[in-house]
Amino acid sequence: MQQLPFVIAVSTFLVVLVTAAVYFLARARRSAGTTWMALMARLRQIDRDNFATVALDLLDERDAESQLDPDSIFEMIGGMDGLDAVEQNCDVLIDMATYVQHWYPEALEIAEELRLNSREIKWHIGRLRGASHTGHMYEQFPVYAQRAVATYYLMTRSLLVLYEGGQVPGFAELQRAL
């Protein structure tokens, strides 16, 4: 009887540990076996021309300030819905870079870079969500949203270069989607 608490604690601990290991290993296996079509299906639709315009407005090397006014940026991105789509697409882009590792194991580096870029985007979007709670959404939106979109745009360029240069199947579809 003296050992009962120990036996219960160890049994619970083991069940939790084994369940977590099996669940996450199965998730990793499922993710490794993802098909190209399944990845494409996860991409949320965005207006890529508008997104490119907003991104290039910030990325173009010129001395002048942003030429787009805050209202235009909000409208072109599609407000917070558009940013939610960007946030979800970031995860898909990382999975797409991981998918390339079937052909090029060293694409791991690109996947990791995209993962770090994705963190930046999520940070910007997180700031906007915070601003919406404090009533500062209107002032903050153009600043953070445009940076998030610019970073996302650069991520998509990286991925397209990787797919095109590596002659990975699915490049044409990806180009149309991004």
């Binding site: 990325l59 194991p105 060293e106 610019a150 970073t151 360029r157 990286s158 270069v161 990787l162 240069g165």
Partner: peptide, 28 residues
């Protein structure tokens, strides 16, 4: 382990692109 197979030209292009992205992000 599987050998690296990425062509040098692609690797160089990706490296240049990543450098640019890193620079832009540093600015942000």
């Amino acid at each position: 382990e599987p050998e690296p197979r990425m062509p040098d030209s692609l690797r160089a292009e990706l490296l240049a692109l990543q450098k640019r992205i890193a620079m832009v992000l540093r600015g942000f």
